[in-house]
Design a protein around this nucleic acid. Sequence first.
DNA 1: AAGTTCCGAGTTTTT
DNA 2: CTCGGAACTT
Length: 724
Amino acid sequence: MDNMPASSLLQSLNEAQCKAVTTDNPRLLILAGAGSGKTRALVHRMAWYVQQKGLLPSEILAVTFTNKAAKEMQHRLSQLIQVDPRSLWVGTFHAIAHRLLRYHSQEANLPDNFQIIDSEDQLRLIKQIVKQQGFDEESMPAKKVSYFISRNKEEARRANQCVVTTHESQILQAIYQQYEAMCFRQGLLDFSELLLRAYDLWQQHPDILAHYQQRFKHVLVDEFQDTNTIQYLWLKQLIHTNNAITVVGDDDQSIYGWRGAKIENIHQFTQDYHNVEVVRLEQNYRSTKVILSAANQLISQNEGRLGKELWTESEGKEKIQVYGAFNENDEARFIVTQIQQALRQGHDAQDIAVLYRSNAQSRILEQLLRQYDIPYRVYGGMRFFERSEIKDALAYLRLVRHQADDPAFERVINTPPRGIGERTVEKIREIAQTQQISLWEAAAYYIETTKGSKAVAQLTQFLGMIESVRVAQQSYSLPRLLEFLYQQSGLLDYYQLQASEKSESKAENLQELLIACQQYQEQVEADPSAILTQFLSDCALEAGSEIGDQPSSVVQLMTLHSAKGLEFKTVFIAGLEEGLFPSRHSMQDKKKLEEERRLCYVGITRAMNRLTLSYALRRGYGSYSAPTRLSRFVQEIPSALLNKINVSEPAATQNIRVNTSTPKSNNPFAIGSWVSHAKFGEGMVLNQEGQGESLRIQIQFKQAGCKWLVLSYANLKPLDTLRN
DNA sequence: AAGTTCCGAGTTTTT
DNA sequence: CTCGGAACTT
């Protein structure tokens, strides 16, 4: 163990940070603003307790929200003190819950080969239940049901504990009940179930809980503002008179309310425990004065904040650029040319980020970046473990591991196509349903009772194939098993033999998975019999992490959400328009709107030196383009901090309604102009598509409704009269 | 049963 | 635009 003098650990810390690191108070709340060094404080506090207070690293539990954050924390801690990574409990809530459940699967009433399912599997399962139980698929979309189930689990409510008021909630509850039973039968846990089970485990086994209460002398929680009810309940179980808890949070950076996070937990924490010490980290080491005051001004519009004003010593007078583009193309071009300039001035591409509200906005930016030959990288979107071919391969492994895994069975039964179609599967489902057995067993039964058809032969072969891989599992290493599986199932061949670009990349991904498998095998020292289960769990829990993501010098593109926790010298935020940012789904509700504002705050505070905000006066959604209004967030930033380029105030704040007077353009059928049709009467042009002969325009007629007409046939007459 | 086409919907995201 | 599902065709 290192024996650094105390001063060296505290050396580079400011007064508030020192306080946060060294206080003996066992109930500590660190309110840490953006860029104030919160991870630093947290990691140093851990090191401090090990070095000065004699804690063993194994007596510390540190919880984060993302795997990335967990890795970062582990990495930074290992730079301060020597730790055996295996003794350290640093991980996401889900990973730690998972670890507990593996250790205590028996007490948690779980089969030892229980499997974690992701949201996609969950949706499939729900869809099936809705169908099977004869509920209306229209009014009960799987998404809605999954939302209901997750929200209830997050509030620690089992199916029989949901609040049921309306007829609709009765149905939702019934589906939840079915879902619960189904997951239980098959040994499947969804993400919120991990948390709820871990909570139940401790609730029902005080002896186990007591063990962990004694073991973990210090519990630290990062991004506390993002905890949901069940996570906080779980933490509270663990906290005892003899152990310490440190939480770090920033109420202004709470951006996950829509998925159950409760900012109130920060406030609740000070109520639930006595003598909570609150340390505020308000000195920002990241951004210039201008950027910081813009952020402060913006966030001050929110109500009920815990109150905290960031300040900085750094100078930097460069104003925030605001660019009003004609349309999304112009916006992208502006951003990309600005980036090009910055690169020419010698800026490093990796110090530049473009942030946006929704993933869909990345496409046009990518297009232009490619055009300008600027290397870039898009974060988010489809991740490796979410790709269908990867999920197929993993589903095969799941089925090999646990044949009662119905979602896995469904997924691979006819992938690649092997002549077992919907009709056969439907029959198997029926058998499984009536006899309450797994699809695997039902398939075996079906083979026995149905003789002679082609599908039956295929089915027999399929079951035999899985079985043979299962047997091979005993003697094969993980990568070799996967290779054998590729070969037996024909999955890889299926993609390799097709000559499209898509299947080529799918085949590559499957190869990539093989490599990942090899690396996994080398890294993880696990019991050979357990390694498959472990690998599958880790794939499910770390689905988000990209494979082989080496940071290279490229421009970064990502949503505002995924930018949290990162910083860049130069930041562009695109699409600052009402309805896009803030999103139209959040504009009605004050709470949601405040969350959007926090999201904007997060975005602004990512920037160290230079920030550019942009918006488009018209934005196209597919073939449809509509005028926009400047986001209120830009207007909430004092003009003195802004350098407006090409911003024409009246145009930007123009009414959403299309100009109803005769358009200025010489095209009498431009969008917004009024026309007359012999049959349908008068109407307004809403949209147009195509060119020349096939140019079609969409018209909202006063009486006849909305129609698409081919201009060259419709014989439309322009109406010049002014209308209001 | 499998391949093709068409239609429509489309925040944010981690685990 | 682009993905996924349904509906349609072969």
